[in-house]
Design a protein around this nucleic acid. Sequence first.
DNA 1: CGGGCGGCCTGGAGGC
DNA 2: TGCCTCCAGGCCGCCC
Length: 273
Amino acid sequence: MPELPEVEVLRRSLKPRLVRQAVERVEVLSPGLREPFDHRALKRLAGRSIGGLRRRAKYLLIDFEGGSTLVIHLGMSGRFTIVAHDEPAAPHEHLAFHLATSERLRLVDPRRFGLAFALPTAKLEDDRHFAHLGVEPLGSKLTADHLRCLASNRRGPIKSFLMDARIVVGVGNIYASEALWRARVHPRRSVARIGQGTWERLTDSVRAVLGQAIEEGGTTLNDFADGEGNAGYFQVSLAVYGREGEPCVRCGRDLRRFVQTGRSTFYCPGCQH
DNA sequence: CGGGCGGCCTGGAGGC
DNA sequence: TGCCTCCAGGCCGCCC
C-alpha cells in the first residue's frame, strides 16, 4: 500500500511517540520478510533510545542513539503501529519493539514483501538498498531539467520512467497515474517525445499530488494506517486511480484502465495526450 | 544495455 | 456455503 506519502505520514505520526523513547526489548517473531531477519543485529537495538525518524524513498529510518539505524519498508501490506503492551499478538506480527512506556511498536505484514534490518547509521548510504536510488521528489533536486537529462538516453513510456526509483523515488502505481492525469500526459507517451514545458508540468504535478496526499493522511484503499492505526483519506481525492468507467472530473469522458508493464494504469482518454 | 515480465506472498472480492 | 480465479499500493532478478 505505501508509496512515499504513506511512509511520510507514518513517520510524522510516529515521531512524537518515539523520539527519546527507549526500546527495552526486541522480539523477533518470524524468520523474516522479503529477506531473512538478521536476528542479532535487530536484538542489539534493545536498551537503546531513539534519536530521530527519517525517510528515504519508501524506507522509514529510525535512528538510535549510539549510531544504529533501524530500516523499515512496508512492502505492499505492512503496518507499523504502536499498540498497548498487553495487546495480543496479531496474525503476521513479525517484529515487536517493547517501549519503556509499556507500549509496543509492531510490524505486521501478511504478504511479507516488506523489509526490516538494522545497520550502523554511517553505512546507510552505501547499503545496497539505497545506493542506486534517485532524487527525492519533494526535495530541490527534482527539476524539469533533471528529468529531461535522465530521459535523453532512454526510451519507453513516461509512466515507467516516473516509477523508476533510479530516476526519482517514492512514486508508485497510484501516484504515477494521478500525477500524469494532473499533467495531462498520456501514460504511454514516450519520454523521448516530451518537451520542456511538459517536463515542468510533470515535476509540478508529482510534487503537488504527493504533497496533497501527505496532507490528507495518505491513501487507504485497503489497509494503510499511520503509526496510531488511523486511516488516510486521500482516496476520496483520487482523480483516476481505481475509477475506470467513471467520468473525468475535468472533461467528462469515461476514465479507462489498461495494463502497463504488469500494473494497472488509469487515465482519461479525453484530456491526457 | 535497458525495458518487460514473472515471481515472491496472503487475503479479499466476485463469479458460479 | 464453498471453491475457484483474479487482483492488490513494491521490488528484484532474469531474460530478450
